[in-house]
Design a protein around this nucleic acid. Structure first.
Length: 565
DNA sequence: GCCGTTTTCGGCCCGACTGTTTTCAGTCG
């Protein structure tokens, strides 16, 4: 599922993990990891490349090209990390070395077995483990389990679009779309709901069951079929007559709480709402059902965008005619947080700019990492040389203005990488937390507020630093931060990377009440990441944001005024 | 294993943090 590049990325990561757990050369591990990332982020389709083509991908040499070709030819994976060790390394804070030790010495191969071992205090006897390790591992496991079996919106979207694309072409299918939490743009998705309008359910049900990535059929009837994919994701397919399409979409999009409200509204009007339509409660006469618009209209409501359907006041706002006109992906005129291979990006400046121009942006900011993220080895000379390249590229580029920026590191006391005089030379500065995640609430709040107060900082990047299912965000008094943003005219980022989505929808809702502006950014490290903004826009919509709230939906002149210190 | 304005060998993404050590290994960004 997904691109072949993703499979190859996983293959090379597997090689890296193997070398890591067997205590091999750390540089070799890194070489495989770098090649894995490069292939994952490459716009080229590796399935179509020969050895020469493969070696043109950065960090891919003769040896790795050979292994990739071998995999593509035979599908074989030469050796595998023991499944148990792999599972254990998914626990945040537990790396390959210690996972291997647990596996070998205690025979632990699953998270449950590890929990048992911890409770039996068997870990303490192992060299390198103590009471604190136990605590940390338990915390890591609980973090992982909170995400549960839900998958990230990025992966779910890819699968859903492929699925609806394939089912749409089945004979008799009038319409086909996904509904559920994915349509509401929730950050994680439990299962995928697909709706089909058709008078003949048979063929499309059969088509779903016959898909190559269908691993298991959970239910198979004339109205509903449920399958589990090879990757363990459940897909529910419902087939409805075309006259019920709108009611079905409304019903299966949810949320449950939103549907309870709409049904209450129906009852008060002497109506009955189900997935088949909106009917008169007494006569049973159909009042609406073919489109969502007519269903909502019959309830006295304008159409409500799916991301709003969370019972957060959207019904009342709709009845008053005060629903926000939500920002849409097409409203974005630029991206204000992106990287190149000058730091940890995968593609050169020119390629990133080309890809941005192809998206039709009016402006595009290049914001590579600043020196205090030591591993990126940024220097004054390097960033200034990049600025020259950006300026000259800007002169030759028609239609899209390039902005030269940087992603600064907010130190533990709120200090930044460069003095103000140097920062003044950038068109914009994003400032983000990349270290000292463990400071107490007061210290975290203070450092963020101080970053906001720097006149050269216009955007706070991924404000909480959370990574979904991997790491909780930092503890801070975010109301205080929102207040500081509003006061200083600093935008908060909605980082659109599907593993981050930071701020999250609820924080966006709250921040907006303080009068904060937002920037929906991809944080792209490769051209293939630029489209991630769609997920950030989903968060913005769930946070009730309009075009006016999002600074990179503004025309360049207005944005420039905002960026001025 | 990759790479080269230090080019076919000898570097490579460095430093902080944590918990376990008594001088360091593992993990992370």
């Amino acid at each position: 599922m997904g691109r072949v590049n993703d499979e190859v990325e996983a293959l090379l990561q597997e090689y890296a993990d193997l070398i890591a757990i067997s205590g091999g050369d750390a540089f070799k591990v890194r070489a495989y990891e770098k090649a894995a990332r490069s292939i994952g982020g490459s716009p080229l389709d590796v399935a179509e490349l020969d050895a020469k083509g493969l070696k043109e991908i950065p960090n891919v040499g003769a040896s790795i090209a050979e292994k990739v070709l071998d995999y593509l030819r035979t599908g074989r994976v030469p050796a595998a990390v023991p499944a148990g060790v792999r599972e254990l390394t998914r626990i945040p804070g537990l790396g390959p070395k210690r996972a291997m030790l647990l596996h070998e010495r205690l025979g632990v191969a699953t998270v449950d077995q590890l929990l048992d071992a911890i409770h039996a205090e068997r870990l303490r006897d192992l060299r390198g483990f103590g009471e604190k390790s136990e605590e940390n591992i338990l915390a890591g496991i609980s973090m992982m389990q909170k995400a549960g079996s839900r998958i990230l919106i990025g992966a779910a979207t890819e699968i859903a679009e492929r699925l609806t694309g394939e089912l749409s072409s089945v004979p008799g299918v009038v319409r086909c779309a996904h509904a559920g939490s994915l349509r509401r743009m929730r950050e994680t998705i439990g299962d995928i709901d697909v709706l089909v309008a058709s008078e003949r359910p048979g063929p499309v049900m059969e088509a779903l069951v016959a898909l190559p990535y269908t691993a298991e059929v959970l239910a198979h009837g004339s109205k509903k079929t449920s399958i589990r994919t090879t990757k363990g994701l459940q897909v529910d397919l419902r087939v409805l007559p075309p006259a019920s399409w709108g009611a079905g979409m409304q019903y299966f999009t949810g949320s449950k709480a939103h549907n309870v409200r709409t049904r209450e509204l129906a009852v008060r009007r002497g109506l009955k709402l189900s997935e088949y339509g909106l009917f008169d409660a007494e006569s049973g006469e159909r009042r609406a059902g073919a489109t969502e618009e007519e269903v909502y209209a019959a309830l006295g409501l304008p159409w409500i965008a799916p991301p709003l359907r969370e019972d957060r006041g959207e019904i009342a706002a709709g009845l008053r005619g005060e629903l926000p006109e939500l920002v849409a992906e097409g409203d974005l005129r630029g991206d204000l947080h992106t990287h190149t291979d000058l730091t940890d990006g995968l593609a050169p400046l020119e390629e990133m700019v080309e890809a941005a121009a192809a998206r039709g942006y009016a402006y595009y900011a290049v914001t590579d990492h600043a020196p205090n993220l030591y591993m990126q080895r940024m220097t004054d000379e390097k960033i200034l040389a990049q600025r020259e390249r950006v300026r000259s590229l800007d002169r030759t580029h028609r239609g899209m203005r390039l902005l030269h920026g940087t992603e600064l590191n907010i130190g533990p006391d709120g200090e930044l990488d460069w003095p103000d005089e140097f920062l003044a030379g950038f068109d914009l500065c994003v400032a983000s937390v990349h270290s000292h995640f463990g400071l107490d609430r007061r210290a975290q709040t203070r450092r963020l507020v101080r970053a906001c107060e720097n006149p050269y900082v216009q955007v706070i990047g991924h404000p909480t630093t959370r990574r979904i299912g991997r790491r909780a965000g930092i503890e801070a008094d975010f109301d205080e931060v929102f207040r500081a943003c509003a006061r200083t005219g600093t935008a908060l980022e909605i980082n659109a990377h599907p593993e981050r989505l930071d701020l999250c929808d609820e924080d966006v809702l709250r921040a907006k009440r303080f009068g904060v502006r937002f920037a929906v950014d991809s944080d792209a490290h490769s051209p293939t990441h630029l489209p991630y903004v769609r997920y950030g826009v989903g968060v913005a919509q769930r946070g009730w944001l309009t075009r006016d709230d999002v600074v990179n939906a503004w025309p360049l002149t207005r944005l420039r005024r905002f960026l001025r210190p």
